[in-house]
Design a protein around this nucleic acid. Sequence first.
DNA 1: GCCAATATGACAGTTTGATGACAAAAAATC
DNA 2: GATTTTTTGTCATCAAACTGTCATATTGGC
Lengths: 231, 231
Amino acid sequence: MSAMILVVEDEPAIRELVVLNLQQAGHRPVVADSAEQALALIRETLPDMILLDWMLPGMSGVELARRLKADGRTRGVPIIMLTARGDEQDKITGLETGADDYITKPFSPREMNARIKAVLRRRAPQMAGDVVEVTGLRLDPATHRVTGNDRPIELGPTEFRLLHFLMAHPERVYSRAQLLDQVWGNHVFVEDRTVDVHIRRLRCALEATGHDGLVQTVRGSGYRLSVHPNS
Amino acid sequence: MSAMILVVEDEPAIRELVVLNLQQAGHRPVVADSAEQALALIRETLPDMILLDWMLPGMSGVELARRLKADGRTRGVPIIMLTARGDEQDKITGLETGADDYITKPFSPREMNARIKAVLRRRAPQMAGDVVEVTGLRLDPATHRVTGNDRPIELGPTEFRLLHFLMAHPERVYSRAQLLDQVWGNHVFVEDRTVDVHIRRLRCALEATGHDGLVQTVRGSGYRLSVHPNS
DNA sequence: GCCAATATGACAGTTTGATGACAAAAAATC
DNA sequence: GATTTTTTGTCATCAAACTGTCATATTGGC
């Protein structure tokens, strides 16, 4: 539910209101008043999503979106365009350049939040804040609780995030490096093998309700959360 | 559904029309003809909702909305903006984002009532003015009283707001930053750690009636009010 | 059996939250 | 207007939980 969202908007009034709204929704807004500044910020840390004003002084929002989509590092970051009016042409151009959605001003906070959540759910499910459940194992990000067959399970912060990520992307194998990027953050320097240890701790905690079998090892590749028996 | 609704509108004709409508719908309208007067009224008693003309002499409606949203005490009060359709598009653009909804003039009574009802239905629970109760712990916003198993509990202002917010949003985890935004108001500059201290004071006060267990720590995430045992 | 990959247990450093004390600020009282 | 009293934010310190790494055991593939 808590995503780092970059807001690129040159008009201070609108920018502040958007920021306020994002905070209220539990996100962490970061602001830039120009495409250039946005690029600088993105170079430092990759946001989870970008809210991008269509019209910007200097490099336009469209141009910025195009650049981001051209760069492999930033291609995956969802972009929502803020456009002045529901101009069909803008819409087409915007979606062509790779925007994931667009919002036409004036917009209600409710609409904005709904669209943000929808895009997050599509691109980064573990950020959407939805309850995830797999065969009796249930994780609720909002209350930060995990239960197995309705019995509470205690997890440390890292194990919680790890399980959350795996449950949000079931049936798919992730390498240790990928897990480090997704769960730890893509800037930290930790040993690959550390993942093993946390996987073990997670399995340990899940053992109490017999859900430890869900976390499977894929030899030579990484780990996976799957409902299907392993071998 | 009877709510106290503050109408901020400088033009007498429209004001009266709106007031009449509200009365007919069973609400209790209170009027102000300027943002300044509105602030004065709000200082006395918190309305359940605000209908706000965006064009006002002196402080504009937009500015008022921003102030209200910046103050922890008033930020939960739903705001519906009244905007004139004929006004310059670009001025209106995005300005309503501080509001929960907006109505463009001229509007039908039917539309107004529908929107009011919708907003009231989903308004922030702690602003409803309703008594909140959790397992014998009871907080009455109207009388500003807290009791545990019918025994009075003394709380400082901050602890009261903190408890109120938590009780209005039970089971959900809030980070220190979120609590500072929601309870203190997001303009203040206070240390994150200060939240810890107030949580402790709150627990201290609740200890007398054995309700201190409700306020739970979620390591690495924040705090939560929950009826479920922690460990 | 041999090799490589993974599991496991232990450990020390680090982070995080709880707690008590304190002074500034605000409110209430005289 | 001065003086208590209450409230508030910050800090230093302590205990507990968590984390990353390593050494060693175990497993699976050939």
